[in-house]
């Protein structure tokens, strides 16, 4: 069917009823149909990672999935990280370590790092660098992002 399809998406524990064409990507659906514009688009071809969200707990590029594929998945976006107005340790660590400048890449990095650390709470340095190399940042030069994720890893283990 090329016609719009009614879908129910589970995002950050809330269910969203949307009506989208099959060709609408998950990223566009989150942004334009669910109003969750924290997920950003920097390339729409899988390289920059600004669109990274968690699907069933794992970091994925939401520009490379279609919303129609995602019914029944547990999706998490940057909007779901803070709880009751309290920043997630990863958000807090990015703030404290100046891990962002323009902030455009930030949601993608946060989701990548949270998704990874939830599976691997105690990564070694080389591994961590390799994983964080999945996403691009044009402003920070990455140092402070690395510092932030290291700090958050320690905080999350606590």
């Amino acid at each position: 069917m090329t016609e719009p399809i009614d879908l129910t998406l589970d995002v950050n524990g809330r269910s969203y009823q949307v009506r989208v064409e099959p060709r609408r990507t998950l990223a566009d659906t989150l942004r334009d149909d669910c109003g969750l514009t924290g997920t950003h688009l920097g390339c729409e071809h899988g390289v920059c990672g600004a669109c990274t969200v968690l699907a069933d707990g794992l970091p994925v590029r939401s520009c490379l999935m279609f919303a129609v594929q995602c019914e029944g998945m547990e999706l998490r976006t940057v909007e779901g990280l803070a709880e009751d107005g309290r920043l997630h340790p990863m958000q807090q660590a990015f703030w404290e370590n100046h891990g962002l400048q323009c902030g455009f890449c930030t949601p993608g990095f946060l989701m990548l790092a949270v998704g990874y650390l939830e599976q691997h709470p105690d990564p070694d340095e080389e591994e961590l660098r390799a994983v964080l190399s999945s996403n691009l940042c044009r402003c920070t030069g990455y140092q402070n992002i690395l510092k932030a994720v290291r700090q958050a890893a320690a905080d999350m283990r606590r």
């Binding site: 924290g38 950003h40 688009l41 940057v78 703030w95 962002l100």
Partner: peptide, 18 residues
């Protein structure tokens, strides 16, 4: 710490495409 950061960290920033 920067005052700019909290909205950018929580996805509440508003970029033009938003």
């Amino acid at each position: 710490l920067r005052f700019e950061d909290p909205p950018l960290l929580t996805g509440e920033g508003a970029f033009v495409a938003d």
